[in-house]
Nucleic acid binder design. Structure first.
Lengths: 205, 205
DNA sequence: TCGGGAAGTTACCACGGGTAAGAAAGAGAC
DNA sequence: GTCTCTTTCTTACCCGTGGTAACTTCCCGA
């Protein structure tokens, strides 16, 4: 809303509008961070200083916006996870750090996470699976190569990847909504479960 | 839509309308099963043979409808799980049966699951957490009593319960949307992960 | 100088959740 | 038996949101 209120229709002067796809997505993130997960396309357009059809031209439908933001969020989660691991091997401790990094990233982008995972009913499954598959695909690959290396059946990779991502998403949702759930503790406990299993004996890594 | 098309306003003759809350919810389930997860309140009302305000009187808002249906679905999942376990002890095999029963119940109620988990953005977290907490609460209790019995720290119960439920929900979503994912196989693989952990050695139960 | 395409804006439509206002039926009072 | 008041339901509406059509202006090239 930086523009004058009274405008006449038609193409405005000044050459092509300097609003890129990324600028629209930046605006979307700002609106979501400021006003919460129920952000409308109108609000995003206003924040970007453009009108609604521009958003549709630069990004696409609301589902496309959510998908693009899901890509951003999952990329950020991957970056945080890599930083947390920092070349450490695959141990129980590094697994906990990985989970904690993911949880903290979601906490830091609370409403973005809710926007991305909480699509309209139309494409609900799609909305959640987009964020999921951004994470499951590399995770599945990593699982396959690791299982092959240690001589175990790699066919479990897909199930495990989806399962672990689902576990992370639900834990994120819980941590977001609960005051008593501490990301560090939750991450440690989930790592315990994933590493040793329900009945596995605890042993130092 | 069993009623005549031309009606005049006002209270219709014949005493109080014989439409219970459960009847409305039954209608909602029929509409969802027939037309998919994007079912409107109008459609539900029409299916129940009433008008929209009746739905609001008997059940409540759309979020309330979703919550009520989530209770039904989780109850059905619990029944299926109990039947699958059938008094067996807590073993890897029974865990796989438990998971498979859950997956099959979701597959059998595909659109109901999507309707329940895919609330409007407003109350998204709530929508998913409702179904989740119906399952996490008893699961958490079971985990606490079991961990105490075998002399392990019971404080992990909440994290584990949310994690496992999230794992189940994501796996359900995946199984629903994928043609290649077989509930039996997926359940077995997830049980493997939960029972032995990522690095646990496989051993017969 | 003058089309014609490019680029945006306004205005609109459809639809869904939710509610207010009003109309008929029924129950009770006199 | 009639009159009024309450209950119970319907119609009709409001509002916000996603998505698009129509139209208006600018600019570039002939």
């Amino acid at each position: 809303m930086t523009r004058p209120l009274t405008r006449r229709p038609g193409r405005p002067p000044g050459g092509q509008l300097d609003v890129s796809r990324d600028a629209v997505l930046d605006a979307a993130e700002r609106v979501i961070a400021r006003d919460g997960a129920n952000a409308s396309i109108d609000a995003i357009a206003a924040e970007a200083g453009v009108t609604k059809p521009i958003v549709y031209d630069r990004v696409g439908s609301r589902a496309d916006v959510a998908t693009a933001l899901a890509e951003r969020l999952s990329e950020r989660m991957a970056v945080a996870a890599r930083a947390a691991l920092d070349g450490r091997g695959f141990t129980r401790s590094s697994l906990a750090s990985f989970i904690e990094a993911n949880l903290r990233t979601v906490v830091d982008h609370r409403d973005l996470f809710l926007y991305v995972t909480g699509g309209t009913t139309d494409q609900t499954s799609l909305g959640r699976l987009v964020l999921a598959e951004q994470s499951t695909a590399p995770l599945s690959l990593a699982l396959v190569s690791w299982r092959k290396r240690v001589g175990l059946d790699p066919s479990v990779a897909d199930s495990w990847a989806y399962g672990m991502v689902g576990m992370l998403q639900m834990a994120s949702l819980w941590v977001i909504g609960s005051t008593s759930a501490d990301p560090r503790v939750v991450a440690d406990q989930l790592a315990e479960l994933l590493w040793f299993g329900l009945v596995g004996e605890r042993r130092p890594d």
